[in-house]
Design a protein around this nucleic acid. Structure first.
Lengths: 334, 334
DNA sequence: ATATTTGACGAAAGCGCTTTCGAGAATGTG
DNA sequence: CACATTCTCGAAAGCGCTTTCGTCAAATAT
């Protein structure tokens, strides 16, 4: 590995001058700068980021953690989309992404401790869970951070406009003539589960529809199975809904499967609308009408906010990313 | 941030002794060791990994890169599954994962240079492309590395048993009575595209079926669109195949869409079989018969091989991960 | 008793880089 | 011409840790 000393030796300047030339200091003449940069090129030298970090306290690395109970981690379609958007944005600014976990060399430590141990410049958290002590610790810390899909007044947060999304969904179903609308809710320990339930209720109210309690069924952790089981309950009722608004696409798929297995059809017998617009939504048969979350934008925005906190100083911000109704085949007028 | 000096000051020992106590050296008495560890606990001290890395040349970080032309990065279902498996395995051994890209602070550099710059202990590459100069550079380097979904005799490689997978697919279709079997091939610049094409031909031969050239159509970069377009060509033929083997699930979905739009049905008019078993495969209607790749296992195996190269020394290995036929609704007997 | 080994610890160098401080040369000012 | 400035550059300290080498006292051997 070639070091700054090698460049110094080769050019005859001191390592101080080499360092200055590399970092564009003004007090090094154009001539020697060129000499040095040529040598750098020739010897294929790249500064060692570890050494640089040690002396500057700036690692140009960002930590990312995700908290979810399914154990699918990066396979989670929402997470990986958001992270991809985040990653692309921060890379443009010269940051690397590092996954933080909770054990270092066999020793369990908190995410925050791990982040400090690694010397990252900031942390992005994608969390589905409501009160997570790990996340709270990060929020309370002085390390710049941004939280995705969770609300807090004490930190930077970024999430979709869940309430408006629900409004769009109910509005759409209402305009198709549906009045008996069920909601397959996300788990109450998740922020978006709660938000969308709230949004559902408020949207129903706004349309002058009253909320039939049994029509609100728990769909669990946003999985297809959860949606399937929830739909089974709805199918057992004598007075069934005509439309189902699921708090997540996967739950909508599960619901449609239950409907199909009951010998009924979507959208003829039930209109179904989801939330997320995961890739599968457009491919499924029938394709799924849903509320599209702009995951790329969420990731980008999170990057923007985090880098801003790192560069300048801190003031908690809340970014609500717009959502959009995507009309497809799974909903029709009554 | 508390440092080793703080612990030294508090306990009255030298930093040398503190360091030794932390690293379980034998030449520190049990008594002082306990004193030091207590102070560590109390002061909530964690060694700074940057400083440690600088002096030990071991970063406990692994770089990961993926090379693909679709620009979807982490959203790629194969990539993220493999990476999740890889991540879980290496984390257990105390390694962190860091995404490598090609620019550092505005300066374009190669993946390999970036890895060296960051001081990672090894690199995992997930590459769909055949000859990538970046990947070749990594293979040729002395930095421990493992390549997923690509073959090379000069490095550690891990990939699915594509050939046997094709054998299973054709065997299945054959056993259902199909004789006119088409293949929607993956892009010839991808390793798996070529492998599966080869596997298709060889399997056909093994079953005494001759290969009708026009029945081999290019499906592009494994996308649904590619499969859709390929299927259109197949549908235009006067003498159509009765079964279609797509080199990837997404292409199979595209093909099924084309079939549906042509007013035909799967599996009544065409049997369709895919390759991958992505999550969607089981959810789709009709659910897709496919060859299941064990992405978790691929990730785990890659981790195993890479860590072994890091710890011990190097001998190029090729790991072929078994695949499995998953029978679902999209295939039926003729 | 003296000589030798062992056990427990500290001083100091070094990892590769940045940055402060200051010095000498070149330039400008009166 | 003497002086103050401005340009260029180098010496050295420091970032937080590991590790080599050595020291000194206690334990053991002779």
């Amino acid at each position: 590995m070639t070091t700054i000393y090698d460049i110094a030796k080769k050019t005859g300047f001191s390592i101080t001058t080499v360092s200055r030339a590399l970092n564009n200091y003004s007090d090094v003449s154009e001539k020697t700068k060129k000499l040095i940069l040529d040598a750098v090129e020739e010897m294929h030298y790249y500064p060692n980021s570890v050494a640089r970090t040690l002396s500057t306290k700036k690692s140009w690395a960002l930590g990312i953690i995700f908290v979810e109970d399914l154990g699918i981690g990066m396979k989670h379609p929402f997470f990986n989309s958001v992270i991809e958007g985040f990653k692309k944005s921060v890379e443009k600014k010269g940051y690397d992404l590092i996954f933080l976990n909770r054990n270092v060399g066999g020793v369990k430590m908190s995410y925050l401790d791990h982040a400090v141990h690694r010397g990252v410049d900031g942390i992005a958290v994608v969390s589905s869970n409501y009160d997570d002590s790990e996340v709270e610790k990060i929020i309370a810390s002085t390390l710049p951070n941004v939280i995705i899909d969770l609300h807090s007044t004490k930190s930077n947060v970024v999430y979709s406009d869940n309430l408006h999304g629900c409004e769009l969904a109910i509005e759409h179903l209402y305009s198709l003539g549906h009045r008996k609308i069920a909601h397959i809710a996300g788990h109450p320990k998740t922020f978006v589960g709660l938000e969308r339930l709230k949004g559902f209720k408020s949207a129903m109210k706004n349309h002058g529809l009253d909320i039939h309690k049994p029509f609100i069924v728990d769909g669990g952790l946003f999985s297809a199975e959860g949606g399937y089981n929830a739909m089974l309950k709805l199918l057992q009722m004598k007075d069934r809904p005509t439309a189902v608004f699921a708090a997540g696409d996967n739950m909508a798929f599960g619901a449609m499967k239950a409907i199909r297995e009951a010998g009924l059809k979507v959208p003829e017998d039930f209109s179904v609308i989801g939330f997320d617009d995961i890739e599968l939504a457009g491919e499924y048969t029938p394709s799924l009408t849903t509320i599209k979350q702009d995951m790329d934008r969420i990731g980008e925005k999170a990057a923007e906010v985090l880098l801003q906190e790192i560069d300048h100083k801190f003031e908690p911000s809340t970014c609500i990313i717009p959502v959009e109704l995507i009309k497809r085949e799974s909903t029709k007028s009554i």
